[in-house]
């Protein structure tokens, strides 16, 4: 355990000491938030308004801002939990590139211990950056109009941890096969640009083509994004009734902004979202363990 603890500490310290990696990781969520606000903020605000205006009702600017902020922060966290995990795994790839991993292997440390240390440090680093982003998000949401209950905050923290575990597992498997700086840069670029769309973070599922919506609903990341949307926007959307808007518009808003997911015509309850995401994490962990075992077996066979 001492070995694992020190390896994890080494990996984390390497990440936080490398300003070239740390600064972009910390800035990425803030830049993303700024881009969301600057380019998509008005789109979301008008979308929110249009749902209730269809029934001839109107929402106060503050409430629209609260709902929009919930959407932006939840989308941001959903993307960061996965994309930051890939950045954090850069330490593992760098160790391969610089030969540090070969150097580590002349010590009695087991290959599995080394792999597990990268996994744990990636999780810790990603969680740390995501919680910083969450903190910044909460500040923004408080300014926009706070509608979160203690339960929402607690569940949001749980969602971030679960999504971080999902991102860590996903990146640990993919990065295992990456052996160059160019390779990890390509993977990071692909994940950063594609994952946001594929998990329903960059645009509501309702705005997607039907075939794409069906595809996205088959991917586990979507359920994590849905949970974050529900916990960070649900309170603000419920508050809509306080402004005299009938409950059917609350449902419409929830469906329009992915707080309630729909899987081929069946509503997906919150517990099912946790089940899907939890199962995805379990599968990723199993694949990771199998890969570690396969590597060990492969080397023994030689």
């Amino acid at each position: 355990m001492t070995t694992l603890r020190y390896l994890v500490a080494r990996n984390c310290k390497l990440f936080f000491k490398d300003k070239g990696v740390l600064l972009p990781s910390l800035l990425a969520p803030l830049i993303l938030l700024f881009l969301f606000l600057a380019f998509l903020g008005n789109v979301y605000r008008s979308s929110i308004r249009s749902v209730v205006e269809e029934g001839g009702f109107a929402l106060s600017g503050g409430l629209v801002e609260s709902i929009a902020s919930g959407w932006l922060v939840s989308s941001l966290l959903a993307v960061c939990a996965v994309s930051i995990a890939f950045t954090a795994n850069l330490i593992m790839v760098q160790d391969k590139v610089t030969g540090a991993v070969n150097d580590l292997r002349v010590t009695p440390v087991k290959r599995q211990t080394l792999s597990v240390s990268y996994f744990i440090s990636t999780f810790l680093v990603t969680a740390c950056v995501c919680f910083i982003a969450l903190g910044a998000g909460f500040v923004y949401m408080a300014i926009a109009g706070w509608h979160l209950s203690a339960g929402d905050v607690f569940l949001t923290v749980a969602d971030v941890l679960l999504l971080t575990l999902f991102g860590t597992g996903f990146s640990a498997i993919v990065c295992r096969f990456v052996k160059s700086q160019g390779g990890i840069a390509a993977v990071q670029a692909t994940v950063s640009s594609a994952y946001g769309f594929l998990c329903g973070a960059y645009m509501p599922l309702a705005n997607m083509a039907a075939w794409l919506r069906d595809l996205v609903m088959c991917l586990p990341g979507t359920y994590g994004t849905g949970l974050l949307h529900e916990h960070l926007m649900g309170g603000a959307i419920e508050a809509v009734t306080g402004e005299g808007v009938p409950p059917q518009f609350v449902t419409a808003l929830k469906e329009g902004f992915d707080c309630s997911l729909d899987f081929f015509g069946h509503g997906v309850p919150e517990w099912a979202c946790y089940l899907v995401l939890g199962a995805a994490v379990a599968v990723l962990l199993c694949v990771f363990v199998l890969l570690c075992m396969a590597e060990k077996k492969g080397r023994s066979a030689k």
């Binding site: 001492t2 070995t3 603890r5 020190y6 390896l7 500490a9 080494r10 310290k13 390497l14 000491k17 490398d18 610089t98 030969g99 540090a100 070969n102 150097d103 580590l104 010590t107 009695p108 440390v109």
Partner: peptide
């Protein structure tokens, strides 16, 4: 193959722990 971002002390500490 020392960790360039880490101090000399850290490099020795993390190696010793192994």
């Amino acid at each position: 193959v020392l960790d360039r971002a880490l101090s000399v002390r850290d490099n020795l500490k993390y190696r010793a722990a192994l």
